[in-house]
Design a binder for these strands. Structure first.
Ligand SMILES: [Mn+2]
Ligand SMILES: [Mn+2]
Ligand SMILES: [Mn+2]
Ligand SMILES: [Mn+2]
Lengths: 229, 229
DNA sequence: TAACAGAATTAGGTTGACCTAAAATAGTGA
DNA sequence: TCACTATTTTAGGTCAACCTAATTCTGTTA
């Protein structure tokens, strides 16, 4: 038999599918289409269909799947997805806080390691970090029991009015965008004064800086904000 | 194409073969047989033959292989094996020093993670640890350029005379043995007074302890000693 | 309501890493 | 030197995770 490294008989690939479904189904837990999964995972749609059929028809199904109508995580699938997400975000925090990684490099490393650390490793870095609630991008870290508070932030690009806000989080998906945001002082917790009428244009002022700055749409799309309490 | 995670197109499996060949060929770099590899790696001999043929016949061969006469690492193969061994031992040291793992648990975790950390991760933990020369079992850590000082220690079971020695290193292969050794105070650096005529019997006295202790042969085989300078 | 576009699935590969069983080879000692 | 045994290799699988190309389904729009 081939070696089963994973405790739950989950492979790296399976975990990545589950995480992708969790991310794409959003807070309302909508069904996720094969194509959206394919494009997020960088595989062919046919590969997705295959995998979904397998995940749905195992003894303990990880997804609910109906042909032509997309997938949803089952209870077991969601549990596992949150476990992997916890790994991911704890590792990111660890790399940033303990190993002094630059913010834009933590994601790629975490994307790999999340699948291979033991429960002991997870627990040890959590203790070392003082059981953090947020990762360095501002994303919240699922608790050990899978609990995660509801999102209260909104995408900067959804903003319809001027005002002062706080950067809630930045997307970890694109290292380049992330570096550009950081260069502009846009990191979680930073104060943002939006001085133009979105969504056409994003003219803002950050914390101490007097010069206004203009954000391109793709940069703005990577930022979530909340009211400046 | 399947995703190529590894920088050198080396897979986890290939790395494990290279490391096993390095370990089994010993300081004299003797040829290694298929069966010894099979038993160390826990795979069928036929699988080993297959893999060796592949490793030997790639554009940049990682091993020198002749049917029925065993394998040797090529220069490239040895370089890679030492790189992975460096990962392994740095990770062990890191788990022990920074994450407070018990000694007997570091090996298993390192055995997995060694294949998945980046060069950046390697460099960062090395810095954090102050570029350590030895892992917590007392094994020496290959330098970045692959250099490693010659072994000067000997197996406790090779001892033919009484005397006082220092524990050089303990084997990391068996967690249970390791725990028993630790319970007896036998850890790298400990002083050992051997009071019986080996190799029949291993009666010893450790550092502060007055009571003599009798070591079984399998425990003794897991210990390497050097003269108490 | 029929046709069509786009989404999704099926059919039929490939590749890596393993397996078992059968065949071949090499070293040994009668 | 010949036969026997232990080692090693070959032959012919499996399984996971991917692929492309062909086919089928669905929701919309003429
Ligand atoms: Mn991943
Ligand atoms: Mn993150
Ligand atoms: Mn390994
Ligand atoms: Mn070690």
């Amino acid at each position: 038999m081939p070696p089963s490294r994973q405790r739950n008989a989950n492979t790296e690939s399976v975990d990545n599918y589950l995480k992708a479904i969790l991310a794409l189904s959003g807070p309302e837990e909508q069904r996720v289409s094969s194509t959206s999964l394919a494009s997020r995972l960088g595989v062919a749609p046919a590969s997705v269909t295959n995998m979904l059929q397998k995940l749905a028809s195992s003894p303990l199904p990880l997804v609910e799947y109906e042909r032509h109508r997309g997938v949803l995580l089952s209870a077991a699938g969601k549990r596992r997805a949150l476990e992997v997400l916890r790994h991911h975000r704890l590792i990111e925090t660890f790399l940033y806080e303990v190993l002094d990684y630059p913010l834009e490099e933590v994601h790629e490393e975490a994307e790999r390691l999340e699948h291979f650390i033991s429960e002991r490793f997870e627990e040890r870095i959590a203790v070392k970090l003082g059981h953090p609630k947020f990762d360095p991008h501002g994303h919240c870290i699922p608790a050990m029991d899978g609990k995660m508070p509801k999102q209260t932030s909104m995408p900067l690009t959804d903003l319809r009015e001027q005002g002062t806000f706080v950067v809630d989080s930045v997307s970890d998906q694109d290292a380049l965008l992330l570096r550009r945001l950081r260069a502009h002082g846009i990191t979680p917790g930073a104060r943002l004064q939006v001085t133009s009428r979105p969504p056409d244009d994003f003219v803002l002022r950050t914390s101490g800086v007097s010069k206004a700055l203009h954000l391109s749409r793709d940069l703005a799309a990577a930022v979530r904000i909340r009211s400046a309490h």
